[in-house]
Computed example of a mutant assay.
Amino acid sequence: MARPMLAAVFIKTGIDQVRRAPDLAPAAEPVTERLAGPLQLPQDPVLLVRLNGAAMAGAGVLFGLGRAPRLAAAVLAATAAPTAYVAHPFWTEKDRAVRSEVLGDFLKDVGLLGAALLAAVDTAGKPGVLWRAGRAGRDAKRLAGVAAREAAHAAEAGRKDLQLAAAKVG
């Protein structure tokens, strides 16, 4: 139940960004200008807002359905960060009441970002890939040690058998 509940906010926000991209682009332009060059993205703020929204909505759907949930949550986090920054610039507000309200909205988005980050690293009770790889390495090393000891014992037994056989013949 938790995944669809969290995903719903991201899906709605993503759809809103796609639909209202021309209205949202002027506020996003400072961020899109800074990110477009280093990430080799087009210099079109409307397109970048739409891409961010589409990625957010798509990842939200995947996350809500439990399909590739860790990857989807990572995409949600990556799209939520610029959204929170652009949508709620409390630091520009002069009026205390408005600033407080915008700060509250910003902190809600930061909380959603935190939830997405937690979901991105959650293994749902199953060991992650790194843990499994480390465990496989430790198991292989242990099995190699056991095999080496067994080979040494077999070689020693073979040597003794050869000595006995040589003593009987000679």
Rank of each mutant, 00 (worst) to 15 (best):
G158T: 09
Q17K: 14
A140E: 08
R159A: 15
A27F: 07
P69Q: 09
Q17S: 11
R96M: 07
Y85I: 11
A155N: 07
E150A: 14
A124C: 03
A157Q: 10
L162V: 07
L65A: 11
A154L: 12
A154E: 10
A157K: 09
W131K: 12
A147I: 01
A166M: 11
V46E: 15
R135Y: 02
T123G: 15
R20C: 01
V75C: 08
T123E: 15
A59I: 03
L118A: 13
A21T: 06
A78D: 03
A87Y: 08
L117R: 05
V98Y: 06
G145A: 15
P26V: 03
V75R: 03
K108Q: 12
D161M: 09
P69G: 08
A157H: 12
L62D: 02
L65Q: 00
D161L: 08
A55E: 11
N52R: 04
R138E: 10
L143V: 02
D122S: 00
R20N: 15
A73L: 02
G134P: 05
E29Y: 02
G66R: 07
A72M: 06
V31L: 14
A8C: 10
P22G: 08
D139A: 14
A54Y: 06
A87R: 06
A148D: 11
D44R: 02
R34A: 12
L143Q: 07
F10I: 06
A28T: 00
L24C: 01
A68F: 13
A87L: 07
R50S: 00
K12F: 14
D122H: 04
T79H: 05
F106C: 08
W91H: 12
A25Q: 07
P45F: 01
R99P: 02
Q40D: 15
V61N: 03
A21I: 02
E150H: 04
V31A: 11
G125K: 12
A28I: 01
V75Y: 08
G53A: 04
G137C: 05
A144L: 09
P82V: 10
I11P: 07
K108F: 14
P26I: 05
G128E: 07
E29A: 14
A133I: 09
V121N: 08
T32P: 00
V129C: 09
H153D: 15
K126D: 09
W91C: 13
L113D: 10
A25W: 02
D105S: 15
A119E: 04
A28D: 03
V61C: 04
I11G: 00
A147R: 08
A36D: 10
F63D: 07
L130W: 13
F10W: 12
E156T: 09
A151I: 10
F63C: 03
A81V: 13
V86T: 14
R20Q: 14
P89A: 13
L143I: 06
G58M: 04
K12P: 11
L6K: 05
L71C: 07
F90T: 04
L71E: 04
P69W: 00
A119M: 13
A68T: 07
R149Y: 06
T92R: 09
L35I: 09
T83I: 05
A72G: 10
W131M: 00
E101F: 15
G64K: 01
K12D: 15
G53K: 01
V86R: 04
A77Q: 06
A97R: 13
A116C: 05
K12R: 15
A77D: 02
V146D: 00
L62F: 00
